[in-house]
């Protein structure tokens, strides 16, 4: 085979997969967002009707608020926790390899239905957490029945799946030049000062990368609310992906569901652009001339 075709041949499986499973459905949903499509009959073009309806849809507005709250609660919590664990695992401890693996395991299992079911049992009325609280002489907490607690419980599940972000942080921490810490120590800097003034600035590219990845994933959260709370109570955990699913497959409004999906996409896109714009102010790359 000619060498110019060889690269294309290697890329072909990925490109075909991308085309079939991502690009075509992506464009298909864009078309459907301008139609009335009930899955059984052919789509009917309705122009911007779906998007106009969204503006007056109380459920959409509530779901959007809940989704934004979830993202702004979960992403910082998860990044902070992942970084905290990564810092601990960066120390030379006995059996550190085992601990690094053990802390990564939840993120392998994390997205699965089984873990969501487990979470449901742990935080249920008579679950493990309330049993521990009772053992400590404390009142049990209604984790899923209280609208505020329910979203927080889902947020904790996502935070618990910190492994992938943690591994990336760990790699970044290990790449920080040790001589910088030695110089700071000679100048009398404390561990905390070294962390704030050396470690954090040097790993900002990785913080930025993790921020974008975790934000996109949090906006797409589905398994947790679907399995654990069903979106309740009072739609306090009714994240947009759940609303999209219900409209598409329960209420047979695939056109409307596609419109919601596109609004969600635009929100993610806008926040990503804002993050990139703000990164000029706080992300430092090697060779950066800023002082």
């Amino acid at each position: 085979m000619e060498s110019r075709f060889l690269g294309l041949a290697y890329l072909a499986p990925y490109l075909i997969g991308l085309l079939i499973f991502t690009a075509i459905p992506f464009l298909g949903s864009l078309y459907l967002s301008f139609t009335d499509y009930n899955l059984i009959q052919s789509p009917v073009w309705t122009g911007l009707d779906n998007f106009r309806e969204l503006m007056n849809d109380r459920t959409f507005m509530k779901s959007l608020r809940v989704t934004l709250l979830y993202v702004f609660l979960t992403v910082p919590l998860k990044l902070a926790f992942a970084l905290f664990i990564a810092v601990i695992l960066n120390y030379r401890l006995r059996a550190i390899g085992f601990f690094r693996t053990a802390y990564y395991v939840p993120s392998i299992l994390g997205g699965s239905i089984a873990v969501a079911v487990l979470w449901r049992y742990i935080f249920a009325d008579a679950g493990l957490v309330n049993m521990v609280l009772a053992g400590l002489g404390l009142e049990p907490i209604n984790w899923f029945g209280d609208p505020v607690n329910a979203l927080f419980t889902l947020s904790l599940l996502r935070t618990w799946q910190f492994g992938s972000a943690m591994v990336i942080f760990l790699a970044a921490l290990q790449a920080v030049d040790k001589s910088l810490y030695e110089a700071a120590a000679i100048d009398g800097a404390s561990k905390w000062h070294s962390f704030v003034h050396i470690t954090l600035p040097l790993i900002t590219p990785v913080i930025f990368f993790n921020l974008i990845m975790q934000m996109v994933q949090a906006f797409q959260e589905f398994n947790g609310p679907y399995v654990i709370t069903g979106g309740g109570p009072l739609k306090s955990t009714y994240l947009l992906p759940l609303y999209i699913y219900d409209e598409a497959f329960k209420n047979f409004n695939m056109g409307y569901a596609s419109a919601i999906a596109w609004v969600l996409f635009l929100i993610i896109m806008a926040l990503t652009v804002v993050a990139f714009w703000s990164s000029k102010k706080w992300v430092y790359y090697a060779g950066d001339k800023r002082s």
């Binding site: 899923f144 029945g145 679907y226």
Partner: peptide, 18 residues
């Protein structure tokens, strides 16, 4: 109450321990 039942999570009655 609705709150009590919701406290069990999204689960059907026959699957509940109580």
């Amino acid at each position: 109450s609705w709150q009590q039942v919701a406290g069990e999570g999204n689960i059907e009655l026959f699957e509940m321990r109580p």
